[in-house]
């Protein structure tokens, strides 16, 4: 593992075996999560963002999903050990899940158990990873965490049931719960997609503040380019189970190399520029069915620059500048392109 990374995903292949057919949900996904930084993962629905995250947590739906290949290396800061999460016995994985790697989800309305108070649910997370702690200490910790995430009157709200809170507050509770164990990585899977922009801004601000306060890495998964632009240090762009481009945030937004990244950026109307009723260049066509992906480069049916080679062979990943990689025949060397 690279010294500056806390997590490295290497060549991950995940397949779903369903009644409707076989879906290769991930096909050689690799990305690194740098320590104390935020990695933004963007892409449209179904491209495999959540499946990658769930693979890290080892929470893929069983028995349909199978990890066919790959490694997920995690550096345990306490012991300094590097461990491949995919080889870990379930017992051991439980000490990492929710403790060293926490995750929050898209739907704050349904992510909390309706029959227990939010306090109970936070205490439970604290106690399972700190068996020596007393019930009372766990409750104090829960109140402290609710306060940290900006819930007013936490001593009172700790006894609320989830339905007594709004969506924004529940997402704060989820964050409080996820951070109550001081994790090294927080995986946030579309944490603000279901929320209003004003509440989204509050939650993102909170995550940034807590990252500084607790010193952790964040994997911020979203389909909203604006969200990652202002909250991530590095970006990975996914399309149909592959990472098509990876780069530091500025390069992705100012100098995108992959036609898909370029198309995504050209799809969103912007507050800072663009005229009224102007045509949005965007991307033509629609996502191919995951059961029946096209041959060659998966993006070629929608790519304005596609040429013959794109239709038959998948492009390899090439590094075009330090930390900036892209999978596209346009950016491979001339000789490999026409061989």
């Amino acid at each position: 593992m690279d010294k500056s990374n806390i997590l490295e995903i290497k060549d991950l292949h995940v397949t779903f075996y369903t009644e409707d057919g076989v879906v290769r949900a991930l096909h050689g996904v690799s990305y690194d999560v740098p320590e104390n930084e935020t990695l933004g993962v963007v892409g449209e629905s179904g491209c495999g963002k959540s499946v990658t995250a769930l693979s890290v947590m080892r929470l893929l739906p069983r028995p349909q999903a199978r990890v066919e290949q790959g490694e997920i290396w995690f550096r345990d800061k306490d012991t300094g050990e590097e461990i491949n999460l995919l080889n870990l016995p379930e017992e051991h994985m439980r000490h990492i899940r929710g403790n060293k790697i926490s995750m929050i989800f898209q739907e704050p309305m349904t992510a909390l158990n309706p029959v227990y108070t939010v306090g109970d649910q936070i205490e439970e997370a604290v106690l399972i990873h700190n068996p020596k702690m007393s019930q009372k200490e766990a409750r104090e910790r829960a109140i402290e965490m609710l306060k940290t995430v900006g819930i007013p009157a936490p001593e009172k709200r700790v006894d609320d049931f989830p339905h007594q809170m709004s969506g924004g507050m529940r997402q704060r509770v989820m964050i409080a719960m996820a951070l109550s164990t001081n994790p090294e990585i927080l995986i946030a899977d579309e944490p603000t997609t279901a929320l209003d922009v004003t509440i989204q801004a509050q939650i993102l601000e909170l995550m940034n503040k807590l990252q500084e306060q607790f010193g952790m890495s964040i994997i911020l998964i979203t389909h909203n380019l604006g969200v990652v632009a202002q909250n991530a240090d590095k970006i990975a762009v996914m399309y149909l189970g592959r990472i098509v481009e990876k780069a530091p945030v500025r390069e992705i937004f100012h100098d995108p190399k992959h036609p898909y990244t370029e198309g995504l950026l050209a799809s969103v109307p912007r507050l800072d520029k663009g005229g009224l009723k102007e045509h949005l260049p965007g991307i033509s066509g629609s996502l191919p069915s995951p059961y029946n992906p096209p041959p060659g480069c998966k993006f070629h049916p929608r790519c304005p620059y596609a040429f013959d080679k794109c239709r038959v062979e998948e492009p390899p990943q090439v590094e075009i500048s330090p930390g900036h990689t892209v999978c596209c025949w346009l950016h491979t060397k001339e000789e490999t392109r026409h061989e």
Binding site: M57, L59, R94, H95, I96, R97, G98, N99, S102, M103, F105, E107, T110, A111, L112, N113, P114, E124, A125, I128, H129, M174, M177
Partner: peptide
Amino acid sequence: NMDYIRTARAKGLP
């Protein structure tokens, strides 16, 4: 299949 079951698993509960 509910989301909160996934949350419970993600906490690290057995």
